[in-house]
Design a protein around this nucleic acid. Structure first.
Length: 495
RNA sequence: GGUCUCGUGGCCGAGUGGCUAGGCAGUGGUCUGCAAAACCAUCUACAUCGGUUCGAAUCCGAUCGAGACCUCCA
């Protein structure tokens, strides 16, 4: 099956994956800030890591998947006058902060489940780990890498680097240059150096979410939660930490610094970063308003796309691009994916229903099928290359359709036939997480009703009453039952 | 301004120093009462200009263009 290779941002190259503890994988993914609806760009990241987790499990690893919910602590901007994002929104809508958190956490879970992502093993919240975060700040202070100023605590980047560490390594940045080129932002008087960042922030009177600490009433800095919760649930040295490219700097850089200072060891072996999803060639972002909500895609109620697309089609569309490439979202591209998706799922359905009966072995075909099966593993092992894996599955689809139409699955050995069935199901359903629920969810009664209609239509056809048979076909199509006349009778699919 | 990434056929999107990516769309056929689906065949590529090489879309340089990060953001 070969080794798994992962692109590690820390190294800047694909490297062989070797877990800290054989057979087990600890993975932490930076989750959403729940102060508004999750947008499609966020979803891409979580779908990408869903496939990573699924594939690791498919390979037999015992995976602990931790993905946080940020429900406090993100500053509006890097200044003393910054406000907690969640409390700002709360004032806007006249709600309790935790009400906002609850509302958008539910929204997030609902969208994630529609995208068929597996829930994380642990989904810790920032507000639930204030104690751990305070403890971590204490450790960093004790180790001399932070200073207190007016009830706030800042990380001392220069001191940290002078102790032999390398803040800036992950994002390949030169701190000296950064300090020199830094803009003169308001409210940075407390910091000794512009590149320093807050570990704990003193809270103003009107600030809603705040907690007591050794430095006064305040709230945790924006990068601290992930460091604290990652260490708590995965240990101070674990396998994979992931997130969007935009988190590489400063978020992940700060996380590393905090962990290294507090625990005196490199926290994570493999850093993985997913690329952005663009809309009209521009990055999707809440702050610029260039966003599209998942619900609006599913319902079709939006100004950008010309029709509705199901969550599975959107998921498939995302997986047709590599996670490290920028992906642009458009109606045309989605329509193409929709057709391809249906073709793939349909062929798999045929294959799983096919009955094997031995025939003369086609050695050449058998070799090709085995090569393609191995290709699926090869491509996934190469830094989770889902587009190539899908391309390989389509090559198998062509073979499956041919064998099906000539009723000749028996030209493969039974062993390879079984392996083909397992591979198609395994990669499509288990690894890529493409749910065929839309095709399979016909309940008994409606299925029988449809079959009744089909038999009436067959009768009409026998009587050469094509007006009636076409009416039945057209009307069924309208309600989402697509009819296909084959040699051995008529089949249907639900759309 | 600094750092970095990318520029592939009608569209999306892989890949890579020499061997068909794949999907969608198009064209011609097979099948069908007609469709749809499926199958077979087939047409469009590697931003521009130089260089390295037996050979480059793939390596190097320049140019043009696009984007990301440098400020909360997946």
């Amino acid at each position: 099956m070969g080794d798994l290779f992962v692109y590690n941002t820390l190294v800047g190259d694909k490297v062989k994956f070797e877990p800290v503890s054989a057979g087990n994988v600890g993975i932490y993914v930076c989750g959403p800030t729940v102060y508004s609806e999750v947008h499609l760009g966020n979803c891409r990241t979580f779908v990408s890591f869903d496939v990573v987790v699924r594939y690791l499990r498919f390979l037999g690893y015992n995976v602990r998947y931790v993905r946080n919910i940020t429900d406090a602590g993100h500053l509006e901007n890097d200044s003393d006058f910054g406000e907690d994002k969640i409390s700002k929104k709360a004032k806007l809508e006249q709600l309790e902060p935790m009400e906002i958190v609850q509302k958008y956490t539910l929204n997030f879970h609902s969208v994630m489940s529609q995208f068929n992502t597996l829930p994380p093993s642990i989904e810790p919240t920032a507000t639930g780990h204030i104690v751990e975060q305070i403890e971590m700040v204490k450790s960093i202070l004790e180790n001399g890498h932070a200073y207190v100023e007016n009830g706030s605590v800042y990380f001392d980047v220069a001191k940290y680097n002078s102790d032999g560490n390398n803040y800036g390594h992950l994002s390949r940045r030169d701190i000296e240059e950064m300090s020199a080129g830094s803009r003169d932002l308001q409210g940075q008087q407390e910091k000794r150096n512009p590149v320093d960042f807050a570990l704990w922030k003193n809270a103003s009177e009107e600030h809603i979410m705040k907690w007591p600490s050794p430095w006064g009433i305040g709230f945790p800095g924006w990068h601290l939660e992930c460091s604290a919760m990652g260490a708590k649930y995965l240990g101070d040295h674990f396998d994979i930490h992931g997130g969007g490219m935009d988190l590489k700097f400063p978020h992940h850089e700060c996380e590393i610094a905090q962990c290294v200072s507090a625990h005196k060891k490199n926290p994570v072996n493999y850093w993985m970063h997913t690329n952005m999803l663009t809309l009209n060639g521009k990055r999707m972002s809440k702050s610029t308003g260039n966003t599209l909500l998942p619900e609006d895609i599913f319902s079709g109620e939006n100004a950008i796309l010309n029709k509705a697309f199901s969550p599975m089609v959107v998921r498939f569309f995302m997986l047709q691009a590599h996670y490290r490439s920028i992906l642009d979202f458009s109606s045309e591209a989605l329509s193409a994916s929709e057709k391809g998706f249906n073709k793939l799922m349909q062929a798999n359905l045929l294959l799983q229903k096919a009955i094997y009966s031995k025939a003369t072995l086609d050695k050449q075909l058998e070799t090709k099928v085995v090569d393609l099966i191995n290709g699926c593993y090869k491509h996934m092992n190469d830094d989770f290359n889902t587009p190539l894996t899908i391309a390989t599955l389509f090559e198998l689809v062509a073979i499956i359709n041919t064998l099906n139409s000539t009723n000749s699955f028996g030209t493969l050995s039974e062993k390879v036939f079984n392996s083909l069935q397992n591979t198609m199901n395994g990669f499509i359903i288990d690894v890529l997480g493409l749910d065929s629920v839309q095709i399979n969810n016909k309940n008994d009664k409606s299925e029988k009703l449809i079959e009744l209609m089909l038999s009436l239509r067959a009768e009409a056809k026998n009587n050469k009453d094509y007006a009636l048979s076409d009416k039945i076909r057209d009307d069924l199509t309208k309600i989402g039952v697509v009819i296909k006349d084959g040699k051995d009778g008529t089949t249907f699919t639900l759309t």
